[in-house]
Amino acid sequence: MYRPKTTLEQWRILQAVVDCGGYAHAAAKLNKSQSSLNHAVAKLQNQLGVNLLEVRGRKAYLTEAGEVMLRRSRHLTQNVQELEILADSINQDWEPEITLAVDLVYPKALLYPVLRDFHPQSRGSRLRILDTVLTGTEEAITQGWADIVLSPNVPKGFLGEPIAEMQFIIVCHPQHPLAQMTAPVDPNELMHHLQLVIKDTSQTPNEKQGWLKSEQRWTVSQFDTAIDLMTQGTGFCWLPEHTVCDEINQQKLVKLDLKGSSFRKLVLWLVHPRPDSLGPGSQLLSDYLLAHRQLKHTTLNTEEEPCK
């Protein structure tokens, strides 16, 4: 019978050293001594007969073999974590806490009726509702820290149920220079004006989504901040149509007629990052979310007044 040479703790220590950028920060994070981490990594390399790290100057860097081994080790530790979570779920009739990660583009007007219906059936479970954006939403799935994720993307290896459809439009103040153009706006013209963008909630954001070509960009954390800035005449922004219906109907903002495309269609998905360990409370909340799904183009706001 095969007996492993290494332990999960050794791999977790290696991951922490790499993620924290060195032994000192990893020791502080793990509440261990730096010497114990040095010993654990050295022993791991000796047991494997493979150099995982090489020291250059005062920093340790992954070798080519180390990069491969580290990547595979993350799958190993993640699988063990999921097994332990599954065991907890089996031993509990109802989970004490449910984490729902909601991408900022999901219409809150769809979420509130769900929560109203779920609350009487929640059996006292604590519910954490966390706003996420872009890579931060993706990490809620890939890192598995949420029980349910409402996301505009389904990462490779995961499954999702479509739950809402909406459009992103480009808007600015009626007196903004872009709004004064009679012909459809050339996308190249946008590059010369201030663009407002929403901050990615990931610790390591990856700017791979959306139109991000403007030479000037201001980053804000909420749609409301971007809307307030634009109603004062500052910048332009791509936003979900339902978030600016009131401002468009009150002529505080206008949709730009953009050459080639003035909007982007977006489908939102309900994703279970750890479907095998989904508890009964999370399943019930998912059922309510799906019951309130809206798969036709939505411009809803609280009064359900369509954008003009």
Rank of each mutant, 00 (worst) to 15 (best):
Leu52Trp: 01
Leu52Pro: 02
Leu52Val: 07
Leu52Phe: 00
Leu53Phe: 05
Leu53Glu: 04
Glu54Tyr: 05
Glu54Asp: 03
Val55Gln: 11
Val55Asn: 05
Arg56Ser: 03
Arg56Asn: 04
Arg56Asp: 01
Gly57Ile: 04
Arg58Asp: 15
Ala60Lys: 02
Tyr61Gln: 03
Tyr61Met: 03
Leu62Asp: 02
Leu62Cys: 04
Thr63Cys: 02
Thr63Met: 03
Glu64Gln: 10
Gly66Cys: 00
Gly66His: 00
Glu67Leu: 01
Glu67Ala: 04
Met69Phe: 03
Arg71His: 08
Arg71Glu: 12
Arg72Tyr: 07
His75Val: 01
Thr77Val: 13
Gln78Tyr: 06
Gln78Pro: 00
Gln78Asp: 09
Asn79Phe: 11
Glu82Leu: 09
Leu83Gln: 13
Leu83Cys: 11
Glu84Lys: 09
Leu86Trp: 08
Leu86Arg: 05
Asp88Pro: 02
Ile90Glu: 09
Asp93Ser: 12
Trp94Gln: 12
Glu95Tyr: 07
Pro96Phe: 01
Glu97Met: 10
Ile98Leu: 12
Ile98Arg: 00
Thr99Val: 14
Ala101Asp: 06
Val102Asp: 10
Pro107Asn: 14
Pro107Glu: 14
Pro107Met: 15
Lys108Ile: 13
Leu110Gln: 05
Leu111Cys: 13
Tyr112Lys: 12
Val114Phe: 12
Leu115Tyr: 13
Arg116Asn: 15
Phe118Gln: 11
Pro120Leu: 06
Ser122Ala: 15
Ser122Thr: 11
Ser122Met: 13
Arg123Ser: 14
Gly124Cys: 10
Gly124Asp: 12
Gly124Lys: 13
Gly124Ala: 13
Leu127Ala: 14
Arg128Pro: 05
Ile129Arg: 09
Ile129Met: 12
Leu130Glu: 14
Asp131Met: 10
Thr132Glu: 10
Thr132His: 04
